[in-house]
Amino acid sequence: MAELAPGEKAPDFTLPRDGGGTISLSQFRGRPVVLFFYPKDDTEACTIEAKDFTAAKADFDAAGIALIGLSPDPVKKHDRFVKKHGLGVPLASDEGLETLEAYGVWKEKSMYGRTYMGVERTTVLVDAAGGIAEIWPKVKVKGHVEAVLEAAKKL
């Protein structure tokens, strides 16, 4: 899978989401969207990232920017994650991996000498016209949400 780059059209998707129903990138056309791809519900870094985006949601809302978290976890797991941590951002479930692969974030990873496939923590800023404005690969969680908000406000 080729890497996506700023200036390219963001792949559309419709996925099941926490709380029931579906969420699509196209339903937000006309406003910027932050997609944060994360490996797994209820792990330390993923929890911090989701809580940080939830804490900043009012600032994103005030700037007219939508937030969507995406992982391969099933909806039931998302529901437990949202309830346990009081999350306020929609979480999309991509169990089939199509969207994760389309965005180039489903990658070979290694830990303790073992290689496996998983989500590389990545954030994609999509502009109001549906184009990719910016990509943050291999995200380090600390201070990340502030950097994304700053970039998104410039659109």
Rank of each mutant, 00 (worst) to 15 (best):
A2H: 07
E3N: 14
A5L: 12
P6I: 01
P6E: 00
K9R: 09
L15D: 07
R17N: 02
G20N: 03
T22M: 05
T22N: 13
S24G: 08
L25N: 02
S26N: 11
Q27Y: 03
Q27V: 07
F28H: 14
G30L: 08
R31L: 04
P32S: 15
V33G: 02
L35D: 05
L35G: 03
P39N: 07
P39T: 06
K40N: 09
D41C: 02
I48A: 08
E49H: 00
E49N: 04
A50R: 01
K51C: 15
F53R: 14
T54Q: 01
A56S: 14
A56L: 10
G64S: 09
A66V: 12
L67V: 05
I68R: 04
I68A: 01
L70D: 04
D73F: 09
P74Y: 01
P74L: 04
V75F: 08
K77E: 10
D79V: 07
H85S: 00
H85M: 00
G86L: 13
G86A: 10
V89H: 06
P90H: 04
G96Q: 15
L97S: 04
L97I: 12
E98N: 14
L100T: 01
V105I: 04
W106K: 01
E108N: 15
S110M: 12
G113K: 09
T115S: 15
G118M: 06
V119N: 07
V119T: 14
T122R: 00
T123D: 13
V124M: 03
L125C: 03
D127N: 14
D127M: 08
A128L: 02
A128N: 07
G131K: 15
A133L: 12
V139R: 00
K140D: 14
V141A: 03
K142G: 09
K142F: 07
V145G: 03
V148G: 12
V148S: 10
L149K: 01
A152S: 09
K153Y: 06
K154Q: 15
K154Y: 05
